[in-house]
Simulated assay, not measured.
Amino acid sequence: MDTIEIQRVVAIEDDNWWYRERRGIVARELRRIGVPGTAVDIGAAGGGNTKVLMEHGWQAVAVDSAPAAVDLCLAQGITAYLGDARFLPLPSATYDLALALNVLEHVEDDRAAAAEIARVLRPGGTALVSVPCDMSLWSAHDVALGRVRRYAKADLAGVLEGAGLRVERLWNCNVLLRPLVRWRRHRARYCEDMADAPPIVNELLSLVSAVERRLPVKSWPGVTLFARAYRAD
């Protein structure tokens, strides 16, 4: 993620429907884990998700490959390190939780990045990972964001399990919005990002996300995949 994109994310993420929903997922997973511990936010960008960890009592650090992202985190009082997802500048078997939200799709060697997630986790530690799903949704949007791929469920599970992580749960998000996303992105010759929606559309999309949380649709095809896994040994 380049400096301009990082600054854009920081400017919109507190109010934007997509970032709010993702933070909500993180918060719900933290409540499931229970007692806070140590955590690392890999690919932290401006530190929005790192702050969610800290607000829930976790001792969190951020890692990003962009100097601008590290600077933004440090300016907010977040402990942050410059580092590649394939070579994390962190000690082994140290963290109770690792976040890697929308990271693996940007890494050519995603298996190396998954192995690093496993390496820094303590035995029994949890990994929470998200990626864009389904190559049939590939569009100019993915190219503009520097993605290498989108994932099927089996692909993501294979990458995580190949790194020594055991997948507890794998689920879809933005299921109800998938037809709109598919139509909107495939008709465009350039990047159209629903994260930049006008205020009234932003609220409508927030409402759709809230409705989806109450429906049994997480096994249906969506736009984003989430996985919760743990290090067994």
Rank of each mutant, 00 (worst) to 15 (best):
M1K: 08
I4G: 00
E5M: 13
Q7G: 07
V10Y: 02
I12L: 15
I12T: 12
D15G: 13
N16H: 12
N16P: 03
W17R: 00
Y19E: 02
E21R: 12
R22S: 11
R28I: 00
R28D: 14
L30H: 01
L30W: 01
R31I: 11
A39E: 01
V40N: 00
D41F: 06
I42P: 00
I42V: 15
A44S: 15
A44G: 07
A44P: 01
A45L: 04
G46H: 11
G47M: 06
G48S: 09
N49P: 00
K51S: 10
V52A: 05
H56P: 01
H56I: 03
V61F: 04
A62N: 04
V63R: 00
D64T: 13
S65K: 07
P67K: 10
A68R: 08
A69I: 01
D71V: 11
L72N: 01
C73R: 05
L74I: 12
A75N: 08
A75Q: 13
Q76P: 02
Q76S: 13
G77H: 11
I78G: 07
T79V: 12
A80D: 06
Y81F: 15
G83F: 11
G83E: 05
D84E: 09
A85T: 05
P89M: 09
P89N: 08
L90V: 03
Y95F: 15
Y95D: 00
D96H: 15
A98W: 04
L101F: 09
N102L: 08
V103F: 06
V103S: 04
L104D: 02
E105C: 07
D109P: 04
D110L: 10
A113L: 11
A113E: 11
A113K: 06
A113T: 11
A113M: 07
E116F: 02
R119F: 08
L121T: 00
L121C: 06
R122A: 10
T126H: 10
A127M: 09
S136K: 11
L137D: 01
A140L: 08
A140F: 04
H141W: 15
H141N: 12
D142T: 05
L145A: 12
L145D: 01
L145N: 11
L145E: 03
G146N: 07
Y151W: 12
K153S: 08
K153G: 05
A154K: 09
D155P: 05
G158H: 11
L165T: 00
R166S: 14
V167Y: 10
L170I: 15
C173T: 04
V175W: 01
L176F: 06
L177R: 00
L180S: 04
L180D: 04
W183C: 00
W183P: 00
R184Q: 13
R184C: 04
H186C: 01
R187Q: 14
R187L: 14
C191R: 08
C191E: 10
E192N: 03
P199C: 12
P199S: 11
N202Y: 05
E203G: 01
L204H: 03
L204K: 05
L205Y: 03
L205R: 06
A210M: 07
R214Y: 02
L215D: 03
V217F: 09
S219K: 14
P221K: 08
G222S: 10
V223Q: 01
T224F: 02
T224E: 12
A227V: 09
R228C: 10
A229D: 06
Y230H: 15
Y230Q: 08
R231D: 06
D233V: 09
D233Y: 09
